[in-house]
Design a protein around this nucleic acid. Structure first.
Length: 484
RNA sequence: GGCCCUAUCGUCUAACGGUUCAGGACGCAGCCCUCUCAAGGCUGAAAUACGGGUUCGAUUCCCGUUAGGGCUACCA
């Protein structure tokens, strides 16, 4: 018998943005599918009408697309198992819920939220674990029919055996066992007719032929209920793999209060998708050796569930920054330049000559961490500096320096060609004549040209800026610094 | 409270009973390079939560304690 084909899914709820934890879950599913020549399905779990957010699905899809995670089947890409949005599959869930009722594995429950709350309060007061008291579990069939015909509100609950336990082999955690007595008779169809997660996930995973359920650890405790449902339906079980959670620096579950959790936040800040993907992949997984810089393609080649860890991982922004820097350096200058265009436009730097921008990128790319750094650290390549580093002015600028800059400007007029080597020679010769160290000219020159005390080598910077700009800025510097 | 999961440097992690003074990376500190800043190179500080077993030998296996997290909805 050939091994069953691998089919996995990412099944988010459209409640807003894509969480970085969600991105990692999606990524692991995607990597696993690609690695094993399987299919990666995107399914929208929108069974909670009250939490629906307008535009969330589009946002989710766009963010995944941006990250390079392409799904094989899903909304807008219908395969053989659609539709891929749960609110469009209601008939399916109803049909399956009825099967469970007919087989005696589920029952109608007429308990009101008020009664449920009373029961809960009583249990808490008696220091008992709160759970449904199974009040409607054994209602006579006639009673049920009458009450339903009378239009009484009802939910459907699954029957959990009173005794025994369910165990399963988690691909990441090994054997997990849960006693049935701690399990509730879970609601599987709500009074609005929508299924809860528990029913929908089982029905869809089966109908969509999902082979491996790779999801967050928060689902671990309810997995036995899902297994029970599979058994009630007489279906084969998928394999389960529960991923460790992503954590805040204080080790609590990653939350909005302690920083950005939306992938789009990082995107807006100018992080590269390559860095984000590489970073989240390594939160809980590693290749087993000392390599750390991975492209999506390389991750596909090496990913395996066996190497996924069990403990939660803190989202450490310092490492993300470093990875971003690393991926930036891996890119061609032209590509970085393309990415920088919109970023520079935001900073008011429009209509920049692309060839020139590429040259700027060449000089700057090892000096920046994020794309927006270009605007902050390299703005002077595109317009004359208006502000000058205060400490730098204090340290390097005085009457003497201003005078020297004018002389330097004069001499640079005759630099031929106006290139690094010739420029350096002129400057060093001048320093010798003035009997000062080269630094005495280099530092004020950098300040005059860029307004900064840090940056690329002075001579290459000059060459790129061009003779006209360099001479002008050197001559105007004293005035400009005075004004700033 | 109950149930489940987890536990190596500050952080991400390697080690799948013994080539280990516990390795790498980020961050931190110092040095080198150098016109500055980056980058790069070198060096350093920094961890097996605790207590019991099992074993000739435990980071590694078992039990307990502690700590953290998750779940305990007509949310996912």
């Amino acid at each position: 018998m050939p091994p069953p084909s691998v089919r996995v899914r990412f099944a988010p709820s459209p409640t807003g943005y894509l969480h970085v934890g969600g991105l990692r879950t999606a990524l692991y599913n995607y990597l696993f599918a690609r690695r094993n020549n399987g299919a990666f399905v995107l399914r929208i779990e929108d069974t909670d009408q009250s939490r629906k957010v307008e535009g969330a699905v589009e946002n989710l899809i766009e963010t995944l697309r941006w990250a390079g995670i392409e799904y094989d089947e899903g909304p807008g890409k219908e395969g053989d198992f659609g539709p891929y949005t749960q609110s469009q599959r209601l008939a399916l869930y109803g049909e399956h819920a009825r099967k469970l009722i007919d087989a005696g594995h589920a029952y109608y429950c007429f308990c009101t939220p008020e009664r449920l709350e009373q029961v809960r309060q009583k249990q808490i007061a008696m220091k008992l674990p709160p759970s449904y008291d199974r009040h409607c579990r054994d209602l006579p069939a006639d009673t049920v029919r009458q009450r339903r015909e009378a239009g009484e509100a009802t939910v459907i609950r699954m029957k959990v055996p009173v005794g025994g336990e369910t165990a399963f082999e988690d691909l990441i955690r090994g054997k997990v066992t849960i006693a049935h007595k701690v399990l509730d008779d879970q609601v599987i169809v709500k009074s609005d007719g929508f299924p809860t997660y528990h029913l929908a996930v089982v029905v869809d995973d089966h109908l969509m032929n999902i082979s491996h359920v790779i999801r967050g650890e928060e689902w671990l405790p309810s997995t036995p209920k899902h297994i029970m449902l599979y058994q009630y339906f007489g279906w084969d079980l998928p394999r389960f793999a529960h991923l460790p959670l992503l954590l805040n620096p204080d080790k609590t579950k990653l939350s909005k209060r302690q920083g950005d959790v939306a992938v789009e936040d990082y995107r807006k800040k100018g992080y590269l998708k390559e860095a984000i993907v590489n970073f989240v992949a390594f939160l809980g997984w590693n290749p087993g050796d000392e390599r750390e810089i991975f492209t999506l393609e390389q991750l596909i080649q090496e990913f395996s569930l066996e190497r996924v860890g069990k403990s939660g991982a803190v989202f450490n922004i310092e490492k993300l920054n470093w990875l971003n820097q690393q991926h930036l350096r891996l890119k061609a200058d032209e590509e970085i330049a393309r990415l920088a265009v919109p970023v520079l436009e935001v900073a008011g730097l429009k209509d920049i000559d692309f060839r020139y921008l590429v040259s700027v990128v060449k000089l700057m790319k090892e000096r920046i961490t994020l794309l927006p750094d270009f605007a902050d650290f390299a703005g002077y390549f595109f317009r004359d500096p208006e502000t000058f580093d205060e400490k730098g002015v204090k340290k390097y600028w005085n009457e003497e320096a201003a005078k020297a800059m004018n002389v330097l400007a004069d001499r640079l007029q005759s630099a031929s060609p106006f290139a690094q080597k010739a420029i350096e020679e002129i400057l060093r010769t001048l320093a010798e004549e003035l009997n000062v160290s080269a630094g005495k000219l280099i530092h004020p020159a950098r300040l005059a040209l860029s307004g900064k005390v840090v940056g690329p080598g002075l001579f290459e910077m000059m060459e790129l800026l061009g003779r006209e700009t360099v001479v002008r800025r050197l001559r105007n510097a004293d005035l400009a610094i005075g004004k700033s």
